[in-house]
Write a protein that binds this DNA or RNA. Structure first.
Lengths: 139, 139
DNA sequence: CTATCTGCAAACAGTTTGCATTCCA
DNA sequence: TGGAATGCAAACTGTTTGCAGATAG
């Protein structure tokens, strides 16, 4: 746990950014939650123990984390921005019933897709990045 | 052209909905544009020739078209709702430079993904629908 | 000390909603 | 004529912005 904090501090300060209480709290909230929360969810979660952190700060902090390569962000079906502390490329499983979003990583699948687009060039388009949206239900 | 209008009229009326001038104009605009427009884009486009159609009507009409199975909708990276008159399953090509969105359909790819998820069950998750987000640049 | 970060509130964009009026069937 | 569709404006939600004051390094 301490290690993670030190790593975070290093990541932050190495980018010339300042290490603040707010940033620590926000980052920890993201790591604790497995649900790829929105800025608003993070705000509601941390506000219980840290009532003085403002919503604007949460938005700005999450954005700087993304810029610093500490978080990834993506849009969900509702158009909400989701934040993800897992930085390597992976897909997401969207549960149609609970609207939960789980991580899914499969190197074979990545390989399969890379090969496919290497072999099947698209007329007038150069593929740079392919990601999967997997919908279904968790059981 | 006439044929399409009659087909549209049939689709609309067969659902117990009314066939109006606004709905015709909105549907035609979508078919003419190849760019998967947002409601706002449709509004701006039709408003040149039909200044009296209101924005609210465009939103409501697009939504009823989706419910009636006349259009598909999906979210883009910016969180905007996009509308698509092509109803069979297909992927989209997102151009990172122009932010254009093109259609991409490849039965082999669909087959490949279906097979993959048939053979690779995901622990605790039942896949219902898989779609691809393909980013790159058009050339 | 000073550049960055924070908190607050106002602004913004896309979309939805409510309701009186209009219009298709 | 009756029920659905329209137009308009107000409301709503998620997010961004501007700025004065606070704070890390």
């Amino acid at each position: 746990m301490k290690t993670n904090i030190n790593k975070l501090k290093e990541k932050i300060t190495s980018k010339g950014m300042k290490f603040t209480h707010q940033r620590l709290v926000i980052y920890r909230s993201l790591c604790d939650s497995k649900d790829h929360p929105t800025a608003d969810m993070v705000y509601n979660q941390i506000t219980e123990e840290n009532p003085s952190i403002s919503k604007g700060t949460v938005y700005k902090t999450l954005e700087s984390f993304v810029n610093a390569g500490i978080l990834q962000k993506f849009r969900d079906d509702m158009g909400l921005m989701r934040f993800d502390p897992v930085m390597d490329t992976h897909s997401h499983l969207y549960c149609n019933e609970s609207s939960n979003i789980r991580d899914y990583k499969n190197p074979d699948l990545e390989q399969l897709l890379n090969n496919f687009f290497k072999e099947n060039q698209i007329e007038g388009f150069e593929v740079e990045e392919v990601s999967l949206v997997i919908k279904g239900k968790s059981k």
